[in-house]
Nucleic acid binder design. Structure first.
Lengths: 145, 145
DNA sequence: TCATTTTCATTGGTACACAAATGGTATTGA
DNA sequence: TCAATACCATTTGTGTACCAATGAAAATGA
């Protein structure tokens, strides 16, 4: 019986050790905590709302770039935020392609009253790590951006 | 003018520093590399196929648990793998609720011929990091599982 | 000026991802 | 034994996420 290189190769691949798998699991953990702590708003929706509050009036695509969502994705997110009255759209007089997105008073209030919870969610996600490890993880993840 | 605690709180939340956002961005990076290096099979599909090859005959839900996919998700993934002839399902004689999933010869061959690329994908995803940093990141992500 | 290129928002299509509900089927424990 | 419980696979519904293509509108440059 000869040595099977294909098997050796395959055996050297362990799903549980791959970055992609570990990233997916960590994201799952985070999203579960988010949904529990801030039900009624998804992490993605909160991210878009937060960025919009930070930036002020912003075109839809620009908001997408600021939140790492492509044009198709940010459209869906913005639509749902608008449907809930958290965000409003007004045409840009200087560029007829664009609509400015803006947080409504209600949206801004929700953001401000949720910001503490959002910080808590990050902390809880990182709870299994020591403070130094948390710093390290955030720094390393940042380098992958 | 009084000090506005809500604003102070809000100002202390920076999207770009939150784990959730950084995890999402790192995942995007990984998925983009995966799609480029192994087109024709998603990262999720490859994960399921790899685990199935590793475990041998496995019920659908058990495969889902082994790959961190819920029952509804693994069903869709398994359906697509079956539609492509990479996986086959046979009824479990001992439990009429179950169907064993099994990689076909074609599925196993594809897995074995793709395992090297899969390892490369992980390496490329981590390319911005030093070897020591890669180890650290994987270890910290593992603790969040 | 006017053609090329870029950008904006939208659409349609595919693929995860999870909650909740369902109908069968096993397992259990009193 | 048989009722309560747990598990399996499936379905429905909602929400990301990305690709590719579209038409309208700007920006660019020869």
């Amino acid at each position: 019986m000869h040595y099977d290189f294909a098997d050796a190769r395959a055996a050297s691949y362990r799903l549980d050790e791959q970055v992609g798998f570990l990233l997916r699991r960590a994201s799952q953990r985070h999203l579960a905590i988010f949904a529990q702590r801030l039900p009624g708003l998804t992490a993605t929706q909160f991210a878009a709302l937060a960025k919009l509050c930070e930036l002020g009036p912003t075109s839809q695509n620009a908001l997408g770039r600021a939140t790492a969502m492509d044009a198709a994705t940010i459209k869906g997110v913005a639509d749902r935020l608008r449907a809930r009255g958290l965000v409003a759209a007004t045409p840009d007089p200087d560029d007829r392609r664009r609509h400015y997105l803006n947080a409504t008073d209600e949206g801004r209030a929700l953001y401000e009253s949720s910001a503490i919870a959002a910080v808590d969610i990050s902390a809880e996600t990182l709870a299994p790590l020591s403070p130094a490890e948390r710093e390290t993880l955030l720094s390393l993840l940042g380098k992958l951006g």
